[in-house]
């Protein structure tokens, strides 16, 4: 276990060559418990700006919890999460860090977007309505600006002709692409993808993955991707973190870790997944 922590510190330093810029995301000794169950155990993780980190591991290993903590859908029991040097779940007051209030959280959270396994589109709004809702009411864009931005994004995900359709009239893959456009419309610096293809029929996975690839080509966005698509992780991610029992068990450059894992648990997992 000790070795693993040293290992992760080494990688962190490697990724953080320019010491003057803080990491885009930093987990500092973050622990999350549900009752007696420890889901994340004093986790340390740094993600550099524009880095793409794929997070893999068996179910229940805490990988989704990591994203949910960063999205503030859950609150850590211990530790601090930083977004570009600024604490997210805590805030400074009189020289000390105290639990953050809603205002602080909303300000820092502004930079983060998330795409969910089950899309969570708003069923009572059209595809375009889903995409422009938050830009209008959260960012304060005019309707005209938001529609322009929304149509551009729907164009990018290849769904501009579906702009007036309700989510229930779209296929799963189309819904997920609208969800990606909805998230991008907020112009986040960090995007979280939580098993975004797991709920899709196999033939629809490709369209969603190529949409993510396209975002990678066209935007500078830091990405944390929880996924079971090992092929995608290998060619798209800069780094892969293997999670097991609430800890990062092994991490390293994607191609290296996925082709030549060192830790026996990683080896066993990859063997089971890749068959």
């Amino acid at each position: 276990m000790l070795k693993t922590i040293e290992n992760s510190a080494a990688v962190t330093q490697a990724a953080d060559q320019n010491q003057s810029t803080p990491p885009m995301v930093r987990f500092d000794k973050v622990t999350k418990r549900f009752g007696d169950l420890v889901v994340l155990n004093a986790l340390d993780l740094d993600v550099a700006p524009n880095e793409r980190v794929a997070i893999i591991g068996p179910s229940g290993s805490g990988k989704s919890t990591l994203l949910r903590l960063l999205m503030t859908l859950e609150t850590p029991n211990e530790g601090v999460i930083y977004v570009e040097g600024e604490p997210l779940n805590m805030m400074p007051r009189n020289g000390k860090l105290v639990p953050a209030d809603e205002r602080h959280i909303r300000r820092v959270r502004q930079r983060i977007g998330m795409v969910f396994q089950h899309f969570h589109l708003f069923p009572h709004m059209s595809a375009l309505g889903n995409v422009i809702e938050a830009p209008i009411h959260v960012l304060g864009l005019s309707r005209q600006e938001a529609v322009t931005r929304g149509e551009e994004l729907l164009e990018m995900v290849g769904l501009v002709d579906k702009r007036d359709q309700r989510p229930s009239q779209l296929s799963g893959g189309q819904q997920q692409r609208v969800a990606i456009a909805r998230s991008l419309a907020m112009r986040p610096d960090i995007m979280l993808f939580d098993e975004v293809t797991s709920a899709l029929d196999p033939e629809l996975v490709g369209e969603v993955l190529s949409t993510i690839r396209r975002i990678g080509e066209e935007h500078n966005i830091t990405m944390l991707i929880v996924t079971h698509e090992m092929g995608f992780a290998k060619e798209f991610a800069d780094r892969v973190c293997f999670f097991d029992e609430g800890k990062i068990c092994e991490q390293g450059p994607a191609k290296e870790l996925l082709t030549n894992p060192q830790n026996p648990r990683t080896q066993r997992f990859l063997q089971a997944v890749l068959g």
Binding site: M71, E133, R182, L192
Partner: peptide
């Protein structure tokens, strides 16, 4: 569904909104 709330959080919407 809970997911609707989570989507709203991910878009940084206020509780009122």
């Amino acid at each position: 569904p809970r997911g609707q709330w989570e989507a709203a959080v991910s878009l940084n919407m206020s509780r009122y909104r």
